[in-house]
Simulated scan of single mutants.
Amino acid sequence: MNRLIPFGMAVAALAALAGGAVILTRAPHAATTGTAADRPADRPSVLTVTATTPQTQDWPQTLVASGALAAWQEAVIGAEVGNLRITELFADVGSTVVRGQELARLSQDSTQAAIRKQEALVAQAKATLAQAQANARRARMVKGSGALSEQQVAEYLIAEDTAKASLAAAQADLDSGRITLAQTRILAVDDGVVTARSATLGNVVSTGAELFRLQRQSRVEWNAELDARQLSQVRPGQKARLTLPDGRRIDGTVRLAAPSLNSATSRGVVSVSLPADSGAMAGGFASGEIELANQSALTAPQSAVVLRDGRSYVFSIGADNRVTRHPVTVGRRRDQRVEILAGLPLGVRIVESGGAFLSDGTPVTVAPSGDPVATAAIPERKS
């Protein structure tokens, strides 16, 4: 009895193997003779994607450039009087100042003493003038009466004019002294940021010596460098967009384009004004784009473009919901969209997102507009 059970199990196993062989031999035949409508069922969809259609939009042409960030204008603040010692400093590098703000002060002792002396000379000249005017007035009253000779009358009148001139000279010297006193206060010539300071406390300055350097109005410009062909297309007022060294993107406006090229580099500089609150710092380097006239562009979402092996691809969706891979040439990028220059047929539906998981000929399920996309609809294998 025990020997019959293994024999029966062996017969059952042979029957199962024979049935499997029949199925395996028929499967290829069924695949080749099945209809087109039956084939998608043989290979189920592996991914649910969203579809979109490329759009034609008017985009500005752009010139890609790079260049240094520099101060819009710099102001040099120096000493207008010499041989005076710096007694006080009120600003340092990085200080934000306003027009007329005191930055430093020179010694005022000798200047104030000279002013007091000149004030005394003015008072003396005024007294002399008063006496000369009184004599001249009496001389005019007795002129022609014989009390005074014509020569004496003339002398009194001339003395009056001389006293007037002496008072004017003394007053001018006093004004000059007061100007010198005012020049001992080193003032900011405009609003801005102090970018350099050579003034040192206790140093005796000479006339014209630079004490501070000021970045006017805290404005920074982007000096984009272009070649001759590009430079001819740039006009003041055009928009620009650049990327700062820290990755932030800001907008600017072309202020002027250089009228000539640098003889050493054969490139010209385009000055782009940046907002005062842009955060750009002079001395840095930035790259960006200058916008020219608008031009029609075939565009697609950036998510629709897949980068593989250094090339860009877009997947179109056919009538049977199978995707076809198209190598494309991309151009400008703007507002999360990219320009397709070549390689994409017109009027096709393309995969908007999920293309990174696809290959040529893969069947997909197109999600209705607004539905969430399943990014992993791959059937599980049963163990």
Rank of each mutant, 00 (worst) to 15 (best):
F7C: 05
G8P: 01
M9H: 06
V11Y: 03
V22P: 02
T25R: 15
A27M: 14
G34I: 09
A36K: 10
D38R: 07
S45L: 00
V49T: 00
V49D: 01
A51Q: 10
D58A: 13
W59E: 06
P60K: 10
Q61D: 11
W72K: 15
I77G: 12
E80D: 15
E88Y: 12
A91P: 04
Q101Y: 09
L103F: 12
A104Q: 12
D109A: 15
D109G: 13
A120L: 12
T128F: 03
Q133K: 09
A134R: 13
N135Y: 02
A136E: 03
R137P: 01
K143Y: 04
A147F: 12
E150G: 12
Q151I: 08
I158W: 06
A159I: 06
A163H: 06
K164M: 06
A165R: 07
S166W: 00
A168C: 00
A172D: 09
S176H: 10
T180F: 00
L181S: 09
G192C: 13
A199S: 11
L201W: 14
S206C: 02
S206H: 09
V220T: 10
E225I: 03
R229I: 13
S232P: 00
Q233L: 14
T243P: 02
D251N: 14
T253L: 08
V254E: 03
G268I: 04
V272T: 01
A276T: 11
S278Y: 12
G283A: 10
F285Y: 12
I290R: 02
S296P: 14
A297F: 00
V306D: 07
R308F: 04
R311G: 06
D335I: 00
D335V: 01
Q336E: 13
I340F: 08
I340A: 07
G354Y: 02
A356L: 13
L358P: 02
T362E: 07
P372I: 06
A377E: 09
A377V: 04
E380Q: 10
R381K: 12
S383G: 14
